[in-house]
């Protein structure tokens, strides 16, 4: 059992390293063209109804680290911070949910043996 667990965590470790490389490095080379929705809004004519988000002044707004002039560094930092925060929230949530669900199996699937 321990060997099974370890290799599953190896897959997850590799996935995390790949995610860090993509968000921290490759993201600099992402296309800067408007995305599908933005382009449609522009072509059809409702792009000007877009408003700035309330979080538009946040330090990582638009995937650029505030105060970092180098574009490659700026998006890279934003990506790495985003990966770290997503990891903290998502692993925290799902490991906690998984444990909680396993602790209360009766709520999930009523056991016919205990319900006469």
């Amino acid at each position: 059992m321990s060997t099974v667990r370890r290799s599953a965590w190896a897959v997850i470790g590799i996935g995390l390293v790949v995610s860090l490389l993509l968000a921290g490095g490759l993201s600099y080379y992402a296309s800067s063209h408007p995305d599908g929705l933005e382009k449609v809004a522009e072509d059809v004519g409702f792009l000007d109804t877009a408003e700035d988000s309330a979080t538009a002044d946040s330090p990582l707004s638009d995937y650029a680290a505030a105060g970092v002039d180098d574009a490659r560094l700026s998006v890279g930092i934003a990506g790495l911070v985003g990966v770290a925060i997503t990891a903290a929230v998502a692993f925290g949530l799902f490991l906690w949910l998984g444990r909680r669900h396993r602790a209360e199996p009766a709520e999930v699937v009523p056991d016919p043996a205990t319900t006469p």
Binding site: A8, W9, I12, G15, L16, S19, T86, F91, F94
Partner: peptide
């Protein structure tokens, strides 16, 4: 559960 964490990050 751990895969779901990875999926969000990826």
């Amino acid at each position: 559960a751990p895969m779901a964490g990875l999926v969000a990050v990826y």
